[in-house]
Simulated scan of single mutants.
Amino acid sequence: MVEPTPKAPQLLPLIAGMFVAIMPIMTSPFIVGSAMDAIGITMAKAGWLGASALVPIALTSMASAPFLPRLPIRAFAVFCAAMLGFSYLGLAAVDAYWQYVCLSIFGGVGAGGLLAVIAMKVAQTPDPERVYGYIYTVTSIGFAALMFGLLPMREFAGVGAMFLVLAGLAAAPIPLLARLATSAPAAAAQSHEAASAERWPVILLFAVMTLAAPLNGGVYAFCERKAAELSLSAQATGTILSLTMICSIIGSVLVSWIATRPGRTIPTVVVLMIAGISYMLILAAQSVETYVVGMILYGLIQMAMNAYMFGLASALDRQGRVAGALQGYSLIPYALGAGLFGSLARGEPLAMLAWPSLIANLAAIAMLLPLLLMLDRTGRRQNSRRDTAPLAS
């Protein structure tokens, strides 16, 4: 039986859990930049350091999902959050590249397990999109505040103090996670869409994610380094990243308002087009103004892209199998984007990646367009049948 819509006491553990689970993703620019400053590693190594946390999140999330119904869910969630907290404690004390990598992997495993728990609990609600909207809105506000203060704190108190703060934030929600609902997952409803789902749209969607996610991850991982190229201060960079998070809140609100009322094609293509423009502006920026505009656009589409891509996956399979798999899988190319950008740039200005990023993004749109048009046609036919059914009866 599907759980009722969560009230505030049930929502708080979900929000806190999601905040902790995606913390390594949202703070990856700080991890990358701190490692470059603290231990003097190259840009290529820094990129792969970012990937070393994000890939374990994806793999653990996908691998643990089938076993969650047989696990003590509260204890597992608390254990995963503690793993991430201990990894940040370790990062505050180490000074070698391999130690950074090992601790990042350890924390990523904990974050991935927690992400799977939160995804399962959200799936038990009757309106997952609405619940995700609440979660993304509140977590975005939290990360906006975090980004505003984290860089100045690093400048004032050092890299170690920054990691200690992150460790505290990872551990703080543990009492809330211990209150997670423990009811069994809802049985997936059988539907015509799920029964008749074809393989080619699913394969195409995963191919598009393989192409689009590395662009998103690479740009985000090196956006702080781009600010350093433009000689921005730590305070200015933190303010811009905080503004980006605020824009992601606006983007989430716009998606919840527009949703798929005009169909899936127009809003999805618009979001992806804005994404490509933001990548181009950020990477090619020769002035602070251009960089800020790019970061604002990036913030607007950051959560909107997730909403539409995972919504598209849900339309292909109403049982949620495709959406669940895509959410975990998307983190792999997203994480590899940091390593790819670092390896391609090899210490050169990031502007060299601007045009290739835009072209790859346009290719992703072209690949996705037939699927979007097909789903819109299917939706119109289903709506037409529903409208004519009362007349026929």
Rank of each mutant, 00 (worst) to 15 (best):
residue 307 A to L: 08
residue 321 R to G: 11
residue 356 P to K: 07
residue 314 S to H: 10
residue 357 S to L: 08
residue 320 G to R: 07
residue 365 I to P: 00
residue 352 M to S: 15
residue 353 L to W: 03
residue 337 G to Y: 00
residue 332 I to P: 00
residue 349 P to N: 15
residue 358 L to T: 05
residue 338 A to I: 09
residue 321 R to V: 10
residue 327 Q to G: 15
residue 346 R to Y: 14
residue 360 A to E: 01
residue 330 S to R: 06
residue 361 N to H: 08
residue 311 G to S: 06
residue 367 M to Q: 03
residue 326 L to V: 11
residue 356 P to F: 11
residue 316 L to M: 09
residue 355 W to Y: 15
residue 344 L to I: 06
residue 319 Q to D: 02
residue 366 A to R: 03
residue 307 A to K: 01
residue 346 R to I: 08
residue 333 P to R: 00
residue 339 G to C: 04
residue 329 Y to R: 04
residue 315 A to M: 06
residue 344 L to D: 04
residue 330 S to E: 05
residue 329 Y to G: 12
residue 361 N to Q: 11
residue 324 G to H: 13
residue 318 R to E: 14
residue 336 L to K: 01
residue 340 L to I: 12
residue 316 L to C: 11
residue 327 Q to W: 00
residue 309 M to I: 09
residue 309 M to Y: 13
residue 360 A to H: 05
residue 316 L to I: 13
residue 347 G to H: 14
residue 339 G to L: 02
residue 311 G to W: 13
residue 338 A to G: 14
residue 325 A to M: 15
residue 334 Y to M: 02
residue 356 P to S: 12
residue 321 R to D: 13
residue 312 L to F: 09
residue 357 S to I: 08
residue 338 A to E: 05
residue 358 L to Y: 12
residue 331 L to R: 09
residue 366 A to S: 10
residue 331 L to Y: 14
residue 344 L to G: 02
residue 319 Q to G: 14
residue 358 L to W: 07
residue 327 Q to C: 11
residue 343 S to G: 05
residue 365 I to C: 03
residue 367 M to V: 05
residue 326 L to A: 14
residue 319 Q to W: 05
residue 318 R to Y: 02
residue 356 P to V: 05
residue 316 L to R: 03
residue 365 I to E: 00
residue 310 F to Q: 03
residue 344 L to S: 03
residue 341 F to D: 00
residue 317 D to K: 09
residue 366 A to C: 09
residue 357 S to K: 09
residue 348 E to L: 13
residue 323 A to D: 03
residue 320 G to Y: 08
residue 315 A to Q: 11
residue 354 A to M: 06
residue 366 A to F: 14
residue 317 D to H: 13
residue 360 A to T: 06
residue 316 L to H: 10
residue 319 Q to P: 04
residue 355 W to M: 12
residue 319 Q to M: 06
residue 330 S to A: 14
residue 311 G to Q: 02
residue 313 A to G: 10
residue 321 R to I: 07
residue 337 G to Q: 02
residue 310 F to P: 02
residue 322 V to H: 07
residue 341 F to T: 00
residue 307 A to R: 02
residue 318 R to A: 15
residue 317 D to E: 07
residue 340 L to G: 10
residue 344 L to E: 01
residue 348 E to P: 01
residue 359 I to L: 06
residue 339 G to P: 02
residue 324 G to V: 06
residue 337 G to P: 00
residue 358 L to V: 07
residue 361 N to C: 12
residue 344 L to A: 10
residue 335 A to G: 15
residue 353 L to E: 07
residue 310 F to K: 02
residue 353 L to D: 03
residue 325 A to E: 01
residue 324 G to W: 11
residue 350 L to Q: 09
residue 350 L to S: 14
residue 340 L to T: 12
residue 352 M to H: 12
residue 355 W to V: 14
residue 366 A to T: 13
residue 358 L to C: 12
residue 320 G to Q: 11
residue 329 Y to S: 10
residue 335 A to C: 06
residue 313 A to Q: 04
residue 345 A to F: 04
